[in-house]
Design a binder for these strands. Structure first.
Lengths: 211, 211
DNA sequence: ACCCATTGCAAACGTAAGTTTCAAACATCC
DNA sequence: GGATGTTTGAAACTTACGTTTGCAATGGGT
């Protein structure tokens, strides 16, 4: 059926282009011509550009959240095994596994997640916190006992610091990797970067108790 | 002289508005009407919107860099005193002190610095790395001996993680503070946030050596 | 074979933005 | 104090965008 194909092609093109340039900087004309469909197709199938942006996120996030929930479920059954680092690794593992270990797609979507925080798309932040707020809270509830001695304030600020580290790295993933290669002559493998990032966040988080 | 006044009023208005909404989201019409000057004044005095953006950064960054250089100079004379945390505190102290301990202006400009990384303004990133790349390198040279055992790769990635933490917190400073107040009922003082941030970055950085 | 809802397409519309224009107001220097 | 260069002001210009429109093509159900 032609419909499905058009919708998918738009989503594929939009995902890549948004990740490369950002939302506002990617015009519907660029998306539709890349996808090889008519300009009006976006408004016909999705209603608006905003709805297209949300659809791109939904297509990626829904399976991801389901997978993370599944992994956290297993964790909850053995509360003693919960450490900060293990919790962080749930996320990185899930992102990597859930879409067929496709590193390109994963890094592209990391950038999208970063942009979602970063670019002024209030509708998108609303959509995300509305649809995915629950899993955020669940994650927070698991994190709390892994950081004994941390007050609510400690927890809030340090999780957001860690979030910021991840978001920034995601948003600038390719740029950073290019800079690193320029700098050190080494092309750091993705897994290496994820490991370093996890270590960094875990040690920052673990020092969460203030003073 | 009317010229100086117009230029200053444009810069003042632009600094605040850019920090609030971002660069692309702030039109010249909004800037000029807020500043109480004619629409054409921006193009007359600065040449273009891009040049205005750069001028906003230049007005803030030039004194800041001078101050940071002065502080680093004193540091270099006593190499044994250089710790990661002390180096980080050079930056926060300088941002706070250099423009008259004006917390509002400092937080506004923090957001601008975040946006500079975050929003797609290639010209701005080029401008910054061209004009302020030297002090970056100087800072890196001081940081290196404070992190014994770290390879060049370690250093690159972990400093950029720390940078990301700071940038993200800066970019979303007001939003985060509002969320924290909502969450915990406490209105965290600026100095407190800076302290926590410094601690977080320092402990992440100090674990920089990879395995 | 025909009908009709769905989809595709080219073109136009409305809007908001950065920039340019050109005459008027102003300041400066001889 | 008049000529000259600088700054301001209102308006128009140009461009790019998201969206809408009207019509043609399509294809499955009766």
């Amino acid at each position: 059926m032609a419909q499905k194909e058009t919708v998918e092609r738009i989503l594929d093109a939009a995902e890549v282009l948004f990740a490369e340039r950002g939302f506002a900087e990617t015009s519907l004309r660029t998306i539709t011509s890349t996808a090889g469909v008519n300009l009006a197709a976006v408004n016909y199938h999705f209603g608006s550009k905003k709805a297209l942006i949300q659809a791109v996120f939904e297509r990626f996030l829904d399976p991801l959240v389901e997978d993370i929930n599944y992994r956290l479920e297993k964790f909850s059954q053995d509360p003693e095994s919960i450490t900060v680092e293990a919790l962080l690794r749930v996320l990185s593992a899930s992102v990597y596994e859930v879409h067929g270990r496709n590193t390109n797609r994963a890094t592209a979507f990391m950038r999208l997640l970063g942009l979602a925080y970063t670019q002024s798309q209030a509708h998108l932040r609303n959509y995300i916190s509305e649809h995915y707020g629950e899993i955020f809270q669940r994650y927070g509830r698991l994190l709390k006992p892994a950081l004994p001695g941390a007050t609510a304030e400690d927890l809030f600020w340090h999780t957001h610091f860690a979030l910021g580290t991840a978001i920034f790295t995601m948003s600038n993933f390719d740029a950073l990797r290019a800079m690193a290669e320029n700098d050190t002559g080494q092309r750091t493998p993705v897994n290496d970067i994820v490991d370093r990032l996890t270590t960094f966040m875990a040690s920052g988080l673990s020092n969460a108790s203030h003073d």
